[in-house]
Amino acid sequence: MSTAELHTLTGAYALHALPEDERLSFERHLGACEACAQEVRELSATAARLGLAVSATAPPAMRARVLREITTVRQEPPSQGRISRAGAAQGRAGRWTAYALAACVAAAAALGGVAVWQNQVAQDARQEARQAREHNTQLSRVLAAPDARTVSAALEGGARGTVVVSQSENRAVFAASGLARPPGGKVYQLWFDDGGTMRSAGLVEASDTDEAVLMDGPVDRASGMGITVEPAGGSARPTTQPLGLMGFPAA
């Protein structure tokens, strides 16, 4: 990662939303970049204040009243006009200060809601990053398990599927090559074969057709797996003929 790219990570770092490798790279960069260190301190302090903010709804009539009052305020004249009509300008300035204060109050009420939203976005980003790390860790553990066993089979349409099963991890990983994107409004769904009863093992997103997928749920006593095309969101039971069935390898 280039130094220019590292300079752009201050906000994500302040919100603890960086993946582990990027976090480590950025922390090494912080030791040599005072500008980024200062920005992180400021953003962290701001994030803390925003996290304490409470949403407040402005009175319904406030917006209309502020906009109405603004229309009665003349634009300030040029500097010479202000000098020659100092008294009048001072009066207008006083009225404008009151109206500006009212507008600020309205904005502050709205920004309370923005602060809560920003805090929720940061929390969601951290949660998604944590879930992604946990998912990738579990997938790696299955693939690297000493008792991992692999079996492959041809799938309908010329694709090929491979499943890796680890009894010690009680999980399975599925991968396919040459698997076309599902038709519109459809999705690929994985299934565990529990002695002839198919149990859902998760969906394969259209963007993941060439990626290894950690199957949902434990293997338990499943003897194999299958993959079908189902309506978007998946089905409780298979509704189409499977593209392929694979028996799990013996332990």
Results as ranks from 00 to 15, higher is better:
residue 2 S to G: 08
residue 2 S to F: 02
residue 3 T to E: 14
residue 3 T to I: 06
residue 5 E to K: 14
residue 6 L to P: 06
residue 9 L to M: 11
residue 10 T to K: 01
residue 12 A to V: 02
residue 12 A to R: 09
residue 20 E to F: 01
residue 21 D to I: 03
residue 23 R to E: 07
residue 23 R to W: 00
residue 27 E to Y: 03
residue 30 L to Q: 10
residue 30 L to N: 10
residue 31 G to F: 00
residue 32 A to C: 05
residue 34 E to T: 14
residue 34 E to R: 15
residue 34 E to H: 10
residue 36 C to Y: 00
residue 37 A to S: 15
residue 38 Q to N: 09
residue 38 Q to F: 00
residue 38 Q to G: 04
residue 39 E to M: 01
residue 40 V to P: 01
residue 41 R to H: 11
residue 41 R to P: 02
residue 41 R to T: 09
residue 42 E to G: 05
residue 42 E to C: 04
residue 43 L to P: 03
residue 44 S to L: 12
residue 44 S to Q: 12
residue 44 S to R: 13
residue 47 A to M: 02
residue 49 R to S: 12
residue 49 R to W: 06
residue 50 L to H: 04
residue 51 G to S: 05
residue 51 G to Q: 03
residue 54 V to I: 12
residue 54 V to G: 04
residue 55 S to T: 02
residue 56 A to Q: 08
residue 58 A to G: 05
residue 59 P to I: 02
residue 61 A to Y: 08
residue 63 R to M: 08
residue 63 R to H: 13
residue 63 R to W: 03
residue 67 L to V: 12
residue 68 R to D: 13
residue 69 E to Y: 07
residue 70 I to F: 10
residue 70 I to C: 11
residue 70 I to H: 11
residue 70 I to W: 09
residue 71 T to N: 14
residue 71 T to K: 15
residue 71 T to F: 04
residue 72 T to W: 11
residue 72 T to C: 14
residue 74 R to P: 08
residue 75 Q to G: 14
residue 75 Q to K: 13
residue 76 E to R: 13
residue 77 P to W: 00
residue 77 P to D: 03
residue 78 P to H: 03
residue 78 P to T: 07
residue 79 S to N: 09
residue 80 Q to F: 10
residue 80 Q to M: 06
residue 81 G to K: 08
residue 82 R to Y: 04
residue 84 S to Y: 07
residue 87 G to D: 14
residue 89 A to M: 05
residue 90 Q to G: 14
residue 90 Q to D: 08
residue 91 G to N: 11
residue 91 G to H: 13
residue 92 R to H: 06
residue 93 A to Q: 14
residue 93 A to K: 13
residue 94 G to Y: 06
residue 95 R to T: 07
residue 95 R to H: 06
residue 97 T to A: 15
residue 97 T to N: 14
residue 98 A to K: 08
residue 99 Y to E: 10
residue 100 A to I: 07
residue 100 A to T: 12
residue 101 L to S: 15
residue 102 A to I: 01
residue 103 A to Q: 10
residue 103 A to W: 06
residue 103 A to N: 08
residue 104 C to M: 09
residue 105 V to P: 00
residue 105 V to T: 08
residue 107 A to G: 13
